[in-house]
């Protein structure tokens, strides 16, 4: 455990130092996050014209979903995406060899090696939106611990999705495009799952578990009856993590038998 902390702190400090070489990025990422939030909320408000609302979700409740979505996007850009693109680079340039020669679990290595601070504005804004909406909804503070648990499980699912994708770079090399597929599908998480027709809901619950990412934690937070969903989310998270690991093993086997 102490070794792990030492590794992580070294990894992240080095990444941070490297990223700070490009300080202009801070301006861009902040502008990006702010503009994205403003326009995103505008797009959300379009659904609430002429007295329309999603089934069981007021505008304020939908704001919680949107805030979670923004926060998770931020976390993705801080941890998941930078590591994923590094995996792609490793495969492309052949430096994956060095990773495999390290006496550290290779999945741990490639999924924690990099850290990019440029998603932090998204995280801050997302948390702000959640806080604002929670105040307007008069959320019972007793729901917060369960909601945090749900959000943590969401992160595990999200990580597993990103990582499974990173593993495919070993077959597809230019996997940047696959990240766009995932990003595109995750976009469904901007709206509560109730906003979609029945077929969509099935797809986004059982095929790509977007429903668990934002709608379940939001439901738990606002005190809607979501105990059974939370229980299912535990199962989904464990399953997703296990699969991401199996997938990585599989792709490594293919890497080590095919590369030259």
């Amino acid at each position: 455990m102490r070794d792990l902390l030492r590794i992580l702190s070294r990894f992240w400090r080095a990444s941070l130092a490297a990223e700070l070489e490009y300080r202009v990025n801070f301006v861009f990422s902040t502008l990006n996050a702010a503009l994205g939030l403003v326009l995103g909320l505008f797009a959300l408000s379009l659904f609430f014209q002429n007295g329309h609302a999603f089934d069981g979700w007021s505008f304020d409740a939908s704001l919680v979903v949107y805030g979670l979505f923004t926060t998770f996007s931020g976390i993705s850009s801080v941890l998941f995406v930078p590591n994923l693109s590094r995996v792609v680079e490793h495969v492309d340039k052949g430096t994956m060899d060095f990773v495999l020669l390290k006496p550290v679990d290779s999945q741990l290595f490639v999924s924690t090696r990099n850290f990019s601070p440029w998603g932090l504005p998204d995280i801050a804004l997302g948390l702000g939106v959640i806080g604002y909406a929670a105040r307007r909804l008069d959320v019972d503070p007793g729901h917060v611990p369960a909601a945090l648990l749900a959000a943590l499980l969401s992160l595990i699912i999200l990580y597993s999705l990103w990582f499974a994708l990173a593993s495919t770079s070993i077959w597809f090399v230019k996997v940047y495009n696959a990240t766009e597929v995932l990003r595109g599908l995750l976009d469904a998480g901007r709206l509560p799952i109730a906003a979609y027709p029945a077929g969509y809901r099935v797809f986004f619950t059982y095929v790509v578990p977007v429903a668990f990412l934002t709608s379940v934690p939001a439901d738990v937070l606002r005190g809607a009856d979501a105990t059974s969903w939370l229980a299912i989310e535990v199962v989904v998270a464990v399953l997703a993590f296990g699969l991401s690991r199996a997938f990585w093993r599989l792709s490594l086997r293919s890497y080590t038998s095919a590369s030259s």
Binding site: R183, G184, L185, A195, G199, Y200
Partner: peptide
Amino acid sequence: ELLLWALAMSLPFISMGAWIKA
């Protein structure tokens, strides 16, 4: 990858679902 790109543009279909329901 081109197949993935074709799939990546799924956003219109996501918006479609929400708007049809709305």
